[in-house]
């Protein structure tokens, strides 16, 4: 109730901030960010269209950091990762896979806690009319991946196939990317794809939000627990202070009512500082693929 009741003022404020940002842009006649603005990139983790979530997150971060915040979304992981590695944004919520591959250029800011742990799984799902009993049964079918830069939506399955000694294009009759975990679920639920690789966290959240969609699918395989998609920043931050404030705001989210509301919408428990070694399992998969060629 409280979350909904406070939504409209937040939106108005977002519009005001956006308008201010636009004015600032014009005045500076430059593509550069106005002084003090935090640019925070978001990968289409799960609800890439949830404007309310974005508005509330922005609102919380602005209040918690005292800086204007611009949330930047792109269609693919790659675009966000590129923004990050080219130091165009302060920080971004990216996937573990690009974090691992760009480890030398990035630093870990915070890792979300899901069910109290900074871990999640990758699922291979099939339509609930499928008779497949293992991933091997999916041979010759159509597979939906989420994003080529996604750990759970691509890397995990890819590595699994590599362990089996096959490549996706040889194993599946056809594989395509949907650029969104929710899209993978839709593709499998509609029958467009016979199976799909999906973020286990997103899938579990979707089971609660859209049970009629996930109800048409079932989980064929759950991967081992892997590091949750982290919030990362360029190894050399754009602005130390802003990054520190952003990290503080993220870590303080559970204690703040607005932050707590955003976390509730994301079905997360909070953010934590974790060692980079958390991502070693993912790095091992990347290495496996590199060896497999």
């Amino acid at each position: 109730m409280r979350a909904e009741g406070s939504a409209p003022p937040d939106r108005r404020r977002v519009i005001a901030v956006l308008a201010a940002a636009l004015v600032a842009c014009r005045a500076g006649a430059s593509e550069a960010a106005p002084i003090g603005e935090i640019r925070f990139g978001l990968t289409p983790v799960f609800l890439n269209n949830d404007l309310e979530l974005l508005a509330r997150l922005q609102s919380y971060l602005e209040r918690a950091t005292g800086h204007p915040v611009r949330l930047i979304t792109r269609r693919t992981y790659q675009e966000i990762t590129a923004l990050l590695t080219t130091r165009q944004i302060d920080a971004a919520w990216i996937c573990g896979y690009p974090f691992v591959t760009h480890r030398s250029e990035l630093q870990l800011v915070a890792v979300p806690l899901w069910r109290s742990r900074p871990l999640y799984q990758s699922y291979v799902i099939v339509g609930n009319d499928s008779e497949a009993r293992s991933v091997a049964d999916l041979a010759g079918g159509i597979h939906a991946f989420s994003d080529p830069d996604s750990n759970s939506g691509f890397l995990v399955t890819r590595a699994l196939l590599a362990e089996m000694g096959v490549r996706p294009e040889g194993f599946f009759a056809r594989a395509f990317f949907t650029y969104g975990h929710r899209n993978v679920i839709r593709a499998v639920a509609s029958g467009l794809a016979g199976s799909g690789s999906v973020d286990g966290y997103v899938y579990e959240v979707m089971v609660q939000i859209e049970p009629e969609l996930t109800g048409r699918t079932r989980v064929l395989r759950r991967s081992e627990w892997l590091a949750f998609p982290p919030v990362a920043a360029p190894r050399t931050p754009l602005d130390e202070t802003r990054l520190a404030k952003l990290a503080g705001a993220l870590l303080a989210m559970p204690a703040d009512p607005d932050g707590h509301a955003v976390l509730a919408m994301l079905r997360l428990d909070g953010f934590a500082r974790e060692p980079a070694s958390l991502f070693d399992a993912i790095a091992a998969k990347v290495d496996l693929l590199a060896r497999a060629g």
Partner: peptide, 12 residues
């Protein structure tokens, strides 16, 4: 390429 009912008209 794609159909509204992929089960009836599978991709490919």
């Amino acid at each position: 390429i794609a159909a509204s009912d992929p089960r009836r008209y599978p991709v490919g």
